[in-house]
């Protein structure tokens, strides 16, 4: 089974993404701050990361940068309320696979995630 890591400090968002992604038949791992997210990234083999930009401890861009240095192959999707052009450019330059802005539609997220996880994602 494939694994997806959600890093977001808002429990409502984690809850929502958890339910949406479980429908894809994947294991969903959760982290509520940047440091915790990086730890999970170290310990586990992951297939997709959904990453918020504004995070306690270590902010999202910094998390992205660190993850990219360790393993450039895992798709990392920024999912954040920060929608300014400069933020989007910064995220993509640091190696984000995609940059999505909140608020988001659960159905849309599900469809997109299925695509990033490849055809084998759906159970």
């Amino acid at each position: 089974m494939k694994s997806v890591l959600v890093i977001d400090d808002d429990p409502d968002v984690r809850l929502l993404l958890g339910v949406v992604l479980e429908r894809l038949g994947v294991t969903v791992l959760m982290a509520s701050n940047g440091r915790e997210g990086l730890q999970v990234y170290e310990d586990r083999q992951l297939d997709l990361v959904l990453l918020d930009a504004v995070l306690p401890e270590v902010n999202g861009f910094r998390v992205l940068e660190t993850m990219r240095q360790r393993n450039p192959d895992v798709p990392i999707v920024m999912l954040t309320s920060r929608g300014e052009e400069s933020d989007i450019i910064r995220g993509l330059e640091l190696g984000a696979t995609e940059y999505l802005t909140k608020p988001f539609s659960p159905a849309e997220i599900r469809v997109r995630c299925a695509r990033w996880l490849g055809d084998g994602g759906s159970a």
Binding site: D10, S81, F104
Partner: peptide
């Protein structure tokens, strides 16, 4: 900021 990010996802755009 937080509510902006989540509310629409729960059906409250």
């Amino acid at each position: 900021h937080r509510v902006r990010g989540s509310a629409a996802g729960y059906g409250f755009p």
